[in-house]
Every structure is written in C-alpha cells, then in structure tokens.
Design a protein around this nucleic acid. Sequence first.
DNA 1: GTCATGCGCAACCACTGGTTGCCTATGCGG
DNA 2: CCGCATAGGCAACCAGTGGTTGCGCATGAC
Lengths: 113, 113
Amino acid sequence: MTVTVDDELWSAIGDPVRRQLLDLLLADGSGTPTSLSDRLPITRQAVTKQLGVLDRAGLVHATPIGRERRYEVDEDQLARAVRQLNDVGRSWDARLHRIKRIAEQIQRGQLDD
Amino acid sequence: MTVTVDDELWSAIGDPVRRQLLDLLLADGSGTPTSLSDRLPITRQAVTKQLGVLDRAGLVHATPIGRERRYEVDEDQLARAVRQLNDVGRSWDARLHRIKRIAEQIQRGQLDD
DNA sequence: GTCATGCGCAACCACTGGTTGCCTATGCGG
DNA sequence: CCGCATAGGCAACCAGTGGTTGCGCATGAC
C-alpha cells in the first residue's frame, strides 16, 4: 500500500526555498531571477539554480523577454505535485488509523482477559 | 496565506530514504539498523544516520534491547507531519483554484467585449 | 571463555546549495 | 549613435549532507 512518488517532483517541492519560490511566483503571477532574489535572503545565482531545478521538474516555465527571463508556474504540473503530496498523506493517515484500530483491539482483548 | 511548516519535520519526511524507513517501520512495527539495512540498498551506517535525523525530528524512538537498538515510529508526531503535508497541499490547491477562477473570469470578460 | 554479531565512531568521497567574481548582452538616455 | 546601467550566464570555490569503508567495543550464544 506504499504510494509511489515521482522523486524528482517530490524533491522539487520538498525544499523550503523552492516552495517559497513557488509561493512568490503564484502570488505575483510571474517573476525574474533578480526580482525573486530581491524578496529572498539568497543571491540571484542561487535563485537561478533553484529555478533550474523547478524547471527540470516541469513546475515552472521561463520565457525570455528582452534581457529578462520571466518565470511562471506550470499550474497543471503543480496540481500533479499537490496530488502526490495528498496521496502520501492519505496513505500514511490510513496506515496510522489501521494501527490505532489494532492497538485498541489489543487493549480491549487484554481487558477481556 | 502561506502555510508555515516545521522545516525539520518536513525535511525529515521529504527525503525518499527516510520515507522508506518510516514505511518499513510502520509495516513491521519496529526495526533495528541492521534489519532495516538488510531491506534497503544502503549500509547499516547510512541507515543509522537517517534514523538519527528521524529521531531528532521526533518521528521515531529507539529503545536498546540487549545489544540491539529497536526503533519504532512515534505515531503522534508522524500524524503531525502528515497534517502539515496536507496543509501545504490544501493551501496550494486553494491558490490554484483561485487562479483558475480569475483566469476564467478574464476569459469571460474578453468574450463580453 | 570464546566467538559471532549488532552497534558506534572516524575518515573519506561525491553531490548539492550557497557564495563571489567576472563576463556578455540588451535596453535606454544623452 | 554611443555609453552606461542592468539582467543574466558561467566558473571557481566552500560548507553541509548522505553515502561509503574500516575499525573497535560490547554483549548474547554456545
């Protein structure tokens, strides 16, 4: 019953910096490495690297406009990632509930002894 | 509307190896570094390090039994982590829906022109 | 008592995420 | 049209992390 996860996608949204980048891009609609680095405590080059990871995972998309590289979130792909997130959560949830039920049954059994 | 996440907890369950360790521990009820490394493609020492991370995040708990260290999942803490997972998922979900609604409104507006 | 085994510690290596420094290209104002 | 300010790419470097191997220690089994 283990949920199989696209590791590249998961690890892309697993990193706190990358989650923040996605948050900013979603909030503003789009952003450039420079504009994003202005709003984060890391340099433009670091932002560029992380955007590269998100790009390879298909979570964002860049379009060169003049001398800028304008990034946007790929909403469909992010929706896919969110679905995986939820799947893993649900799977663990179910397992935890199953365990709890068993534990309660044991306890009841002991009381019955 | 950004969901704040306990980064240590999140990054603990973010790593695929650690997720697998949790999966194994949940499936078997408990495990030792040696028994776990038998079922994974990494060495006992690597398992030990990862269990250390999970331990520091409070997701597992060890009890020395003889010369073994028996690990078990802390179900309450894992439930907390699962809740965070779901929160982030829900937050992005909501945002994506909001964006989609706006996009549809714009489209409708254009048609009305 | 000896031997096998489960574990911890330390050194080492590769990869990743950050930095700085420098270069290129492009848009814009004189 | 020229020159400058600015967005971005590339490379070198550094710290932290996740993996490895090698070793020593302790403890349970015979």
